[in-house]
Design a protein around this nucleic acid. Structure first.
Lengths: 136, 136
DNA sequence: CTTGCCCCTGACGTCAACGTCAGGTTCTAG
DNA sequence: CTAGAACCTGACGTTGACGTCAGGGGCAAG
């Protein structure tokens, strides 16, 4: 398929697909006139790239890690990267979950108040340790 | 406390704190000479701002939603924003969880191969390795 | 043939959350 | 009193993942 169809089937823009190729995250066969052509598996690969981006990985990190995630072969020099990204994801998960809870509480409160029920009091979340220096 | 102490206690930069004030996310009392002073509650507020940023909310969205999350009073015109952010967070949670699973699989595979299968390029640690320049 | 759609390669624009520098003021320790 | 740390206000720089525009080519239909 050509780039327009791939874009449509993945929901990402044509520009983004060309950007992925520029970053060496995606390859394409070229017709004699230079047009890009992709196999069916490109759809899955693009969706996977999007997922990794959405998880906060940079294009360079995706480039480094994708072969490992696909093949299962982890070269020892990328293990640190693998683990630091995992740790970052864990921290971000906590922030997302906590934020989601706060949004849910607000939404529930809103619905309740729209139904005429009085607003309950919200409790503040205890802030998580962010590696700050110990208080004196 | 002054801005430097607040920065240290929250782990965010002085520049970031001034930026938050610029975005009206954070207020400060000013001494006659113009220096910013903060109460103890500023620490919690800054950590909360960071958490919302980490959850992918924009500065404008944080500005809009923070009062609701604190007071529990949701003006009906922000309910849409509240719900769309919640939906976005849910999607991002899926991506993060899936990515974390993939990383975990790769890490586990790596550990297994290091324990069982001899890795071709594993160098032994050299005890006198002092000239190790940290790559940037 | 030509119309219209899709495609190509640069290359500059964008946006957010700061980093960084310049040039000047204020606070504090000795 | 003085050095230096900490603070102030601009204002320009950075980065990543694209958006967008300019200028031009390829190809099936009518």
């Amino acid at each position: 398929m050509r780039i327009g169809e791939l874009a449509e089937r993945t929901g990402v823009s044509v520009r983004a697909l060309r950007y992925y190729e520029e970053q060496k995250l995606l390859r394409s066969d070229r017709s004699p006139s230079g047009q890009r052509h992709y196999g069916q598996d490109a759809v899955e690969r693009v969706l996977r790239i999007q997922q990794l981006y959405s998880a906060g990985l940079s294009s360079k990190t995706v480039l480094t890690l994708m072969p490992c995630l696909e093949s299962g072969e982890v070269r020892p020099e990328v293990l640190d990267l693998l683990e630091s990204e995992r740790a970052r994801i864990d921290r971000q998960l906590q922030d997302l979950l906590s934020t989601r809870d706060q949004l849910d509480t607000a939404i529930a409160t809103s619905r309740a108040s729209m139904a005429g029920v009085p607003c309950p009091r919200l409790k503040a979340q205890e802030p998580r340790d962010r590696g700050r220096t110990a208080p004196v």
